[in-house]
Design a protein around this nucleic acid. Sequence first.
DNA 1: CCAAAAACATACTAGTTAGTATGTTTTTGG
DNA 2: CCAAAAACATACTAACTAGTATGTTTTTGG
Lengths: 196, 196
Amino acid sequence: MKKAEATRLTILEKAFELIYVKGYQTTSIDDIIATTRVTKGAFYYHFKNKDEMGLAIINELLKPTLVGSFIGPLQSAADPSTAIYELMHNLLMENEFLKVEYGCPAANLTHEMTSWNADFNQALNELTGQWTESMTQLIERGKLNGTIRKDVNARQVVMFVMAGYWGIRNFGKLERNKEAYLPYLEELKNYLETLR
Amino acid sequence: MKKAEATRLTILEKAFELIYVKGYQTTSIDDIIATTRVTKGAFYYHFKNKDEMGLAIINELLKPTLVGSFIGPLQSAADPSTAIYELMHNLLMENEFLKVEYGCPAANLTHEMTSWNADFNQALNELTGQWTESMTQLIERGKLNGTIRKDVNARQVVMFVMAGYWGIRNFGKLERNKEAYLPYLEELKNYLETLR
DNA sequence: CCAAAAACATACTAGTTAGTATGTTTTTGG
DNA sequence: CCAAAAACATACTAACTAGTATGTTTTTGG
């Protein structure tokens, strides 16, 4: 049972790439089997239907990536202002997996799927919930170790910062150029400094 | 040539509602003619194809709304911190046209259309460009009248604020509840106060 | 090694899509 | 009032969609 797992993974990875670029609805099963060179029989052997594959992409590809790239860098950090800025800088400017013209995969799926597919909504909510959680804990730690003011409301800050991240991805899509990220990052730095 | 214009406008308005709720790609021409009770012949008399209709929605419906609801409140304002907060509060909490579960129409279209349709991209870019412009001017005025610090970078602030607005709409979609907006708005207020 | 299960392959279907061809009705200007 | 243009109506098409029916091949455990 090794080759079969590889086939399944190929489908998930290639389908994810297509969906990241084209969107979920406009990526057809025929698109997926054409680029994976896996037949329709194989596809439907591994997935009951398209939505089950979509959920598998979120749970099996996006979640681990989220933990690695979005949450990991926050867990060991002691200085929240610096850690959050550097995380955002890395995600926006350096991460070679996330392309400016295609935005943030989780945000794309949220925009497209939410409000008509409850399962996707829940899976995506868990995704952002984990990120929120880890960033909130970081700020609370900062309040304890003196790097963040005691009167700062962690939940507010996290919502504010995460909203900014998702929104600036939208600008990147529009302008198709990472330059759009720079003024945002500069002001994010200014804002984060006010929390000290 | 009065009735014909009414037909055209009906198509645009009903199509916009459908697209706002369901998305552009998943709103079919057949959906549109069914809800408008306009026949396909009439539809294609008024619009060369679906994309031409989509662009007409942006240019003839979204742009005027943008000027009225997003730009108007900024033009007469003297105190940028207050004006921007109140604009956002109004857009998020009070505007009865924008529904929390469906997000921001312009952001939705940006997410969906950009990166595969250059015409939509340009139209949407113009839309956000106008908003950016008016908010930048407001901040510059604030720097002159003493309500904003001289060392504030207007462009940075505008990108930061607008990114936040678009991003928090995403949270609203996920949680389907305006409560998600409240911590964001509180922190926005805090942030805007630091610009004084 | 060999049967049974797992994994994959091919050909199809029924429904939906944007768009067109070809009409008929309604409006308008002289 | 009446022809011509504008506005609309109906019936169709070709391409695409997710999904299925029915196979064949490959792998695996005893």
